[in-house]
Simulated scan of single mutants.
Amino acid sequence: MTGVTNENGAFELTLHSTADLPATAQQIVSFADKQRIFLFFGEMGAGKTTTIKALCAALGVEEAVTSPTFSIVNEYRGKGNTVYHFDFYRLKSQSEAFDMGYEEYFYSDAYCFIEWPEKIADLLPEHFLKVSIDTLGETSRKIIAEHI
C-alpha cells in the first residue's frame, strides 16, 4: 500500500481493507512531517476513529484507543509523544470547546487528532493536516491528506 502525492501536493491513497491501515498510518505520519494538528473529515462510519487508532499505534501508543464521543477528549502517551484525540460530534456550541480549554491542547506541540472539526470551525489553528476519508465500498476507503 503506497500513497502518491497528487498534482496539488496532497497525499492520496486507496485502502482495500483495514489490514492496510498500519502502513497507511506510517505514511501519513511521514507526510505530516512536523505538523501536529490533524483534522479528520468524513461521513459517520467512514473510518475516522479507526484511522486514528492506527495513527496512534504508529506513534507508539500501546494502550487501547477509543472514541472520546462522551468525554470529548482522550489523552494517550506514545514513544516520546503525547496524543490528544478529540471528538466534537456532540458539541452543541463552540463555547463548550472554550470551556474545556481547547487552546491549551492545540498549542501544546502534542499531536491533536480532531474528529468533526467543522463543529469548531472558528477555533481551528491556521495550519493543520486535513485528512479526508471517503467510503468507496464496504471495506475500501480513499484517504487524502493535505497541508493547510
Rank of each mutant, 00 (worst) to 15 (best):
T5N: 03
T5Q: 05
E7M: 06
N8T: 07
G9W: 05
L15S: 13
S17C: 12
S17P: 15
T18G: 05
T18L: 09
A19K: 15
L21F: 08
A23S: 13
Q27R: 01
I28E: 12
V29T: 08
V29Y: 00
F31W: 08
F31A: 12
D33E: 14
F38S: 05
F38I: 03
F40W: 00
F41P: 00
G45C: 02
G47S: 06
K48Y: 01
T50F: 01
A58N: 04
L59F: 03
G60N: 02
G60Q: 05
A64N: 11
A64T: 14
V65M: 11
V65H: 06
P68V: 15
T69C: 06
F70C: 09
S71R: 03
N74Q: 15
Y76N: 07
K79A: 06
K79E: 04
G80H: 03
Y84S: 13
D87Q: 13
K92S: 07
S95L: 15
D99R: 14
D99E: 13
S108V: 12
D109R: 11
Y111L: 07
F113H: 00
I114E: 06
E115K: 11
P117R: 15
P117M: 04
I120Y: 08
E126S: 15
F128D: 07
F128P: 14
V131W: 00
V131Y: 01
S132T: 11
G137K: 04
I143D: 00
I144W: 07
E146D: 12
E146G: 12
